[in-house]
């Protein structure tokens, strides 16, 4: 590592930078569409771990079946021998890294679906207040995504460009920080409700 310059990034800079990108996306998309993403992320926090554990076995079985079919399947000369050969291979999801990849795929699925569903069902941004509320919800989406991603991507604290992912993780998993995010979310929802209850939300003002 000689000759490399070390960069020390405060964990709050990392959180703000990551969330800021989502905030900008929210500013452009509007609050209604961003709320779909927030809902999907909260759902992902609740079910991704459980879903990944439940899917591990069926995915491995399907993987063996697919390999068996590609090796000739029941039309092979000796299907029993082919099956034995296929079963000797290691399962698709075996290590913690594999499980992390499965969780990431599920998360990407939730996120992609929420962006598409939000785009199809929710009205686009109707004004500057809509955009600003969208930015706030987008920021919360960024924080929520970071909260889910870090334990998957960095199971153990790792230093990358002198950035301590452990510190970021510690900050995000601190109960005070989580509660503060919940309070901010409630405030944003109240502001959104008040905005929706006015004519401006439908572009009347």
């Amino acid at each position: 590592m000689d000759g490399l310059t070390g960069w020390t990034l405060n964990q709050y800079v990392v959180i703000a930078g990551f969330a800021g990108v989502f905030g900008l996306v929210g500013l452009k998309r509007g609050v209604r569409r961003e709320l779909y993403v927030l809902g999907a992320l909260l759902l992902a926090i609740a079910v991704t771990g459980f879903l990944a554990d439940a899917l591990e076995e069926p995915i491995n079985r399907f993987y063996y079946l697919q390999r068996f079919a590609r090796a000739g399947g029941l039309s092979a000369e000796n299907p029993s021998a082919v099956w034995q050969e296929v079963r000797e291979a290691p399962p698709l999801i075996e290590t913690d890294k594999n499980r992390g990849t499965l969780r990431l795929s599920l998360l990407a699925g939730f996120l992609g679906a929420s962006y598409l569903v939000g785009r199809r069902l929710a009205r686009p941004r109707t004004g500057i207040i809509d955009g600003l509320l969208g930015m706030l919800v987008g920021l919360l989406n960024g924080v929520a995504l970071l909260y889910i991603l870090l334990p998957i991507v960095f199971p153990a604290p790792t230093a990358t460009i002198a950035l301590s992912s452990g510190q970021v993780q510690q900050t995000l998993s601190g109960s005070a920080f989580r509660i503060q995010m919940v309070v901010v979310l409630v405030v944003v929802l109240i502001a959104f409700g008040l905005y929706s209850a006015s004519g401006h939300a439908r572009g009347e003002g």
Partner: peptide, 22 residues
């Protein structure tokens, strides 16, 4: 009570539920 149109549908229900819980 805050002035404004009563929110209907899932949005109104969701916000009423959340504010009530708060």
């Amino acid at each position: 009570s805050f002035r404004g149109e009563r929110l209907g549908g899932a949005l109104g229900m969701g916000l009423g539920l959340i504010t009530g819980a708060v």
